[in-house]
Amino acid sequence: MDFGPYLMLATLEGAVLAAVLALMASGLSLVFGVMRVVNVAHGEFYMLGAVLAWWVTSMVGGGPAVAFVAALIVVPVIVGALAAAADMTVLKRLEYDPERTIVATIGLLYILQQVTLMTYGADARPVVPPFNTRLALPWLEWSDGGLHMFWPWGLSTTTYKLFVIVAGIVILSAVWAMMRHSRIGLLMRATQLDSEMAQAFGIPVERVYALVFGIGAGLAALAGVLIVPIQQAHYLMGGDALLLSFIVVIIGGLGSLAGTIVAALLIGLSDGIISVFFSPTLAKIIATLLVAFVLVFRPQGLFGTRDR
């Protein structure tokens, strides 16, 4: 494939990854920002989102579109409730101590993986996308003294992939609006700034924490539901997603939602674009080292203001 069309294809693929990553990472960032908790089980909430989406779509009749919408609504709520329950039964009792919460969430990770393996099984299972038309994309070429449009071999995307990009933008805008303009958002921001002060002002910090943990997990689950028609639900899918969203959160600057989103775009697009220039594994190595060096030379992340 020519260079131009290839770059466009890689950018489109990168944008899909970026959208999903931004959703998932903003959940992780929210939890870290407000609660100062590194949630290692975050990838498993993403996995649960995908697995439950398969479950819901295979239970609900009325065609793939109806089933998918049902999953989009029901699944994040279930996962969010589960996470909130885990917060109240386990994390609260650890007093959110950083090291202990890491061990506890690793434990949670094992539990969620194993329970999924025992109930859902080891197979990768597909969900039918609500719509999925292949769109061949045109490219412009300068030939015979004029600009001509043509359809290069393989340059295409699907309507569903475009939908994922749009859905990512819409959901993130909603989250941003909630943080900025709603009462819940205000409580969260107050707790993030100073939880003791917030407590003194009568904010139910414990309930805010449970809510934040639930919303964070819900966002990961939402990302899982959106990705499952493209990639299949599998009980080990959380691991790599967790690594990527960790990277995004740190690069973006801890607890900064805007930074997280920009970083997701950066990571998603660079993953696609670097693969244009290098052999695949070498591209992964370069992308990984790039992240490491960004942090080495800018430890607060690209958009963080200070090391907290």
């Binding site: 590194v38 990277i247 740190i250 190595i285 080292l289 992240v291 490491a292 430890p299 090391d307």
Partner: peptide, 24 residues
């Protein structure tokens, strides 16, 4: 390299270097 960072950034930088070694 990694000791230029601290806390969570240190965790991620070491993670990334390890991933590089694995892929290499």
């Amino acid at each position: 390299l990694a000791l230029r960072t601290a806390g969570v950034a240190f965790m991620i930088v070491t993670l990334m270097f390890a991933q590089t070694v694995y892929l290499t």
